[in-house]
Write a protein that binds this DNA or RNA. Structure first.
Lengths: 207, 207
DNA sequence: GTCTATAAATAGATAGAC
DNA sequence: GTCTATCTATTTATAGAC
């Protein structure tokens, strides 16, 4: 059982590191900068973590573990299949909004082909897809959902969600004068839109 | 007018660099590795380009310039608004398939908030959205499209497209035994799906 | 246009005091 | 648990010969 100050300093490192990895990527992240942001010395990072890679893996694992837990709850709930789909989308949006570093890191990991992802994190990611697949199978048994490919549906949910959260800065740059409606893209509206998009696919209106 | 060998060596650098930036990101990319992949010496890169950053900017600009040109043609064509939407999706998919480095680099740039994007590239990106907005406005005037936010629609097209191309390796890792239908995700099928998804939104079936 | 050699700066990791 | 100081390797960029 670590003393209080130990837990606090480790948490400060994790928070600062998540921010740094999100902003600059794994290779671009700088251990010294993480230390300074955490109001600690660089040596403290190597006291708490074996290496820069191990620190990064812990952040990835926490991130996907949290999403896994949330969507597993949704899949196991007593709600109707369409409501579960809405909850699934909302759960991921909620996690993404609570952790601003989450969408950029996810995007980068995809671009990198999952180079830094260990077996535990792969298991979490697989479980997130499995939760959606279970909801879909549920709805199909109840005769409420058309047959869809779970991974295609998953992409249709995750991709716009992650894009929405991660593109906030880019949108401001591309649509400075609001010609394209950037200002109207509020979180609730976009989440509702993606929920409907998912349900339209499950109602068989899209091949 | 450069001699033939000069153009070839510069092109070899651009091709090798695009691959390296896609695989490792801007910070993770290594100039020496790019030179070796191009069968040249590192000094040659600084003969053709002012810096690593300038090389990266040129790749970004070429990439977005090509997409800009393609979708501008689509928007200016004589096709019906729904066909233009299909062509728009197909054009971007075609560019992405022809340049495997394109989706990962785009994903990384988003994660980075467009840190390496210069004014010329921003103009290209804006034009890509403007082309879609023009097609939508066209269809609305013709009474065939419901009012939609161009940026929301754009996200619903670009995000799943980029995800699809960029997640190929991650999908193999998460769905090794094909439990979730990774094998069924062929390019044509996914593009057709995204085309329909876009049209469903424009037909007012989704808020 | 292409190369070798090297300068100069940066960054991951560790030793050891307190 | 926390710090300073430092080692070592890597990497961007350049000088200068051919």
């Amino acid at each position: 059982m670590p003393r209080k100050s130990a837990a606090v300093s480790k948490d400060r490192i994790l928070a600062a590191a998540a921010k740094e990895f999100a902003a600059r990527g794994y290779a671009g992240a700088n251990v010294d900068r993480i230390a300074r942001a955490a109001h600690l010395n660089k040596a403290m990072i190597y006291y708490h973590f074996a290496s820069k890679a191990a620190l990064y893996r812990e952040i990835l694992n926490d991130m996907f573990g949290a999403v896994h837990a949330r969507v597993a709850d949704v899949a196991a709930s007593a709600a109707s299949p369409p409501d579960k789909i809405r909850d699934y989308v909302a759960a991921i949006a909620c996690e993404a909004e609570a952790r601003p570093h989450f969408p950029p890191i996810w995007l980068r990991e995809i671009a990198e082909g999952g180079a830094h992802i260990d077996a535990a994190t792969v298991a979490h990611a697989r479980a997130v897809v499995a939760a959606l697949a279970a909801i879909v199978a549920d709805g199909q048994r109840a005769g409420r959902f058309a047959p869809v490919n779970p991974l295609v549906l998953h992409g249709g949910i995750i991709a716009p969600l992650m894009f929405f959260f991660a593109t906030a800065r880019v949108r401001r740059r591309i649509d400075r004068d609001d010609t394209f409606g950037a200002a109207a893209m509020r979180v609730d509206a976009v989440v509702a839109h993606i929920q409907q998009l998912a349900l339209v696919q499950l109602e068989g209106k899209v091949i």
